[in-house]
Structure formats: structure tokens, C-alpha cells
């Protein structure tokens, strides 16, 4: 199916349209934000806790920094991280998953064992442990969240590859003595891609929220850089003085996750109609 046809079918239902609109709004906000607002780190003590107005569309925070600029920067940061994490973990995950399904029972047992170990920890706890070990910073963050998400993609790819294994076209390739690496690359991977793309799009909001939670707890982005999590936390601390800051960042987080979720669901209904209803 062409990408245009996919888009058309997503737009044909209400949830898909809503998801697309929300996602576009967030993207535009992330891109256009810095053009219409001052430097996100520009401190203006005189304008502390300014309410929304002509000068500051979303008001300012406890140091008088413009909230449009800060929220937009946070959104950009969250989106970039999420995209990077989802792309890396889906590619690596599907490769490992397919290998597990194809390479024989011994390797399969090792790989699924590792998946089980990673999954046995609640993601946040695992994140704390890894951050304690390797320190804070965006690269550690990307690596660790990627590791946390790989098993999900790996499991799905493994399950799909296992059901492909007994299909005639894979057996025909084997009977032709085509090299196993070629079979994996050319015949397994393209055929597990559909559900993986869907899972990736559904994980996008999860990663955005995960990043926000870690930053909220102080393990993510470090000041003065802004992230949706730190913005909510700062807003939360100063909620007695002003309730603007927390609203702006929360709203962006809500729209971003809701939009990406709706879009992911719609994408799943289009690409993978068979699994509708089951996660």
C-alpha cells in the first residue's frame, strides 16, 4: 500500500483525523515556537510569573523566562529524543527478534531470556539504576530507554517471524539454498515491518511521557535546558504563585501523547487490520 493511500485511509475516520491534527499542531509548535518567541533561557526578573499576554503568549516562569519558548524547546527535545529512541530500538529489536526466531532453539532461548530479564524490571526503576551507574545526560538517556524498549519490538518481530517461518515462500527460499542472511534481510524483515511500524508509532507517546517523568523526577534534562518534565516540575513547585506554567507544559504533553496515540491506533487499523482489538 502506498503511503498516500495509508494517509487517506487514516483521514477517513474521526480518531485518525484527530490524531493527525494533534500531531501536526505539536510539530508546528515545536518548529515555529522559537521563531515567534525570545531565547528560552533569557531571564527577565521584572516579568516573573507574568500571565499570558501580548509580550508572552503563555506567560513566564519564576525567572521571567518566556514559556512559549521554553515549552517549544522542551517539545522539540522530547520529540527528537523519542524519534531517535523509537527508531533505534525498533530496528535493533526487529533484527534481534528475527534472529531469535530463525537461528535455532539455543540462540532463541538466550535472546528471550535477556528480554525477560530486561522486562522483569519496572522501566522507571531500571532507568534509575542505570542512571546511577552511568550518570545523567542525553546520550545515557537515549541508550537506556532504547534498551528498555528493545524487548517489546524484539518479541513482536520474533512472533511474526515464527509464523512466517512455516510459510511456503520462506521454505521455498530455504530449498533454493539462499544464504540465511539474505533470507532474513530480504524476506523476513520486510514482512515483519508492518506491525513493527505500528508498534513504533504507538510507543512514541510512551517514550515522550517516559522522558517527561524522568525529567520531572530530576533524572532527565538538567537545568537550564527545558524539557516538558522539568517545566511541569517547576510549575508544580511554584503553583502557589502562578498556575500558568504548569498548564502550558501539561497541555502540550497531553496533546502530544494523545495525538500520537490516536495516530498510532489509526495506523494499526490501516496496516494491520487483523490484530485490531488486541494489543
Amino acid at each position: 500500500m502506498g503511503s498516500f493511500a495509508t494517509l487517506k485511509r487514516i483521514c477517513s475516520e474521526r480518531d485518525g483525523r484527530l490524531g493527525l491534527v494533534f500531531t501536526l499542531v505539536i510539530l508546528i509548535f515545536a518548529i515555529v515556537g522559537p521563531l515567534v518567541s525570545p531565547d528560552p533561557n533569557l531571564i527577565d526578573v521584572k516579568a516573573r510569573f507574568a500571565p499570558p499576554g501580548a509580550a508572552h503568549l503563555l506567560g513566564t516562569d519564576n525567572l521571567g523566562r518566556d514559556l512559549v519558548a521554553r515549552t517549544s524547546a522542551g517539545t522539540r527535545y522530547a520529540l527528537a529524543l523519542a524519534a531517535m529512541i523509537v527508531v533505534i530500538s525498533s530496528v535493533v529489536g526487529s533484527l534481534i527478534g528475527v534472529v531469535a526466531a530463525v537461528a535455532g532453539p539455543r540462540i532463541d532461548r538466550v535472546i528471550t531470556g535477556v528480554f525477560d530479564i530486561v522486562n522483569a524490571f519496572p522501566p522507571l526503576i531500571l532507568a534509575f539504576a542505570l542512571i546511577a551507574l552511568y550518570g545523567k545526560g542525553p546520550i545515557t538517556f537515549v541508550l537506556l530507554v532504547t534498551v528498555v524498549f528493545i524487548p517489546q519490538f524484539g518479541r513482536m518481530a520474533r512472533a511474526r517471524a515464527q509464523s512466517l517461518r512455516s510459510l511456503s515462500f520462506i521454505e521455498a527460499e530455504r530449498m533454493l539454498a539462499v544464504h540465511p542472511a539474505t533470507i532474513v534481510a530480504r524476506h523476513y524483515l520486510p514482512n515483519v515491518a508492518g506491525p513493527i511500524i505500528v508498534l513504533a508509532s504507538m510507543n512514541l507517546p510512551v517514550v515522550i511521557a517516559f522522558e517527561a517523568s524522568l525529567s520531572f523526577l530530576g533524572f532527565g534534562v538538567q537545568p537550564p535546558k527545558s524539557s516538558l518534565g522539568t517545566l511541569i516540575k517547576d510549575g508544580f513547585v511554584s503553583i502557589n504563585q502562578s498556575w500558568w506554567p504548569i498548564i502550558a507544559a501539561s497541555l502540550v504533553l497531553a496533546i502530544a501523547t494523545l495525538g500520537a496515540t490516536l495516530l498510532g491506533e489509526a495506523l494499526r487499523r490501516v496496516i494491520d487490520p487483523k490484530t485490531t482489538g488486541a494489543r
Binding site: S168, F169, I170, A172, R186, H187, P190, N191
Partner: peptide, 8 residues
């Protein structure tokens, strides 16, 4: 038909 890889 099923013995031909669908995406090649």
C-alpha cells in the same frame, strides 16, 4: 502464489 516472497 504463496511460495513467492510478497515484498520482492
Amino acid at each position: 502464489a504463496a511460495s513467492l516472497s510478497p515484498r520482492s
